[in-house]
Simulated scan of single mutants.
Amino acid sequence: MEALFVSTGVVALAEIGDKTQLLAFILAARFKKPIPIIAGILVATLVNHGLAGTLGAWITSVVRPDIMRWVLGASFIAMAIWTLIPDKIEEEETQVAKHLGVFGATLVTFFLAEMGDKTQIATVALAAHYGAPVMVIAGTTLGMLLADVPAVFVGNKFAAKIPMKLVHSIAAGIFAVMGLLTLFQADKLF
C-alpha cells in the first residue's frame, strides 16, 4: 500500500503545472467534451505508465541491488531538480491526431506527451524502488487523474490560482528526500 500512496502523492504533485496538465486544459478548451478527454487520459496513462512500471521491474531483475541503490538515489535527486523546471507545451502536440475524434486525439497526444516526461521517469524509478509495479502503476495513474481531471473541468480559471512554485517545490522536496534516503540505505522508511 505504501507504493500506491507514495506514487499517487508524488505524481499528483509533480503533474501540477506539467505539460500534460497544460495539455488537459487545452484539450478541454478546444473540444469541451470532458468524458472522452478523461477516458483518453486514463487509457494513455495506463499504457504509458504500464510500460514504465514494467521497465522499472525489469531493471531490478538485471541490476545488482548495490548499484540499483545509487542509480535510484541519483534518479530521485535528478527528478527533484527536473520538477523545479517549468514545463511548456508545444502547439504541435495539440494538433496530433485531430482526425481521430476527442478520445483518440487525447489518447495519442497524452501518450506522446508522457514519453520521457518526468512522471513517466518517476514511474520507472518508483517501480524499481518498491518492486511493486502494479501498485506503482495504479498510484501514478491515480496521481495523474487527480491532477488532470480537475484541469479538464475547470480549465484555465483554476490554473491561475494554483501556487505552482510552491507545489513544484513540495514535489521536488519529496523526490530529494526519497533520493537521499535511498542513497543512505534508509529505504525502510518508505
Rank of each mutant, 00 (worst) to 15 (best):
M135N: 11
G101Q: 10
F76I: 09
V108Y: 07
A80K: 12
E91L: 05
E91K: 14
M144D: 14
G101W: 01
L126T: 01
E114R: 07
P86L: 01
Q120F: 09
T83A: 12
Q120R: 07
A78P: 10
E92A: 11
L107Y: 10
H129W: 13
T109N: 05
M115A: 13
L112H: 01
A127V: 10
Q95F: 03
E114Y: 09
V108T: 15
Q120I: 11
A105D: 12
P86R: 00
I77L: 14
D117W: 06
G139V: 06
G131V: 07
I81A: 15
L100Y: 13
G131L: 09
S75C: 08
T123E: 02
A127W: 04
A138V: 15
F103N: 04
I89G: 05
A78E: 05
L84H: 06
Q95H: 13
F110R: 12
S75V: 02
T140P: 03
F110W: 09
E91I: 03
A125I: 09
W82M: 07
E114K: 03
M79V: 07
F111P: 03
V134E: 14
I121P: 00
L107H: 01
I85Q: 11
V134A: 14
T94N: 08
L112A: 13
V96H: 01
L100V: 00
G116F: 11
A105S: 15
G131T: 08
K118P: 05
W82S: 01
I137Y: 08
L107P: 03
V134M: 15
L126P: 06
I81Y: 15
T106R: 05
V96N: 03
Q120D: 07
L100Q: 00
W82E: 10
Q95Y: 04
H99L: 08
T109K: 00
A127T: 07
A113L: 09
E93D: 14
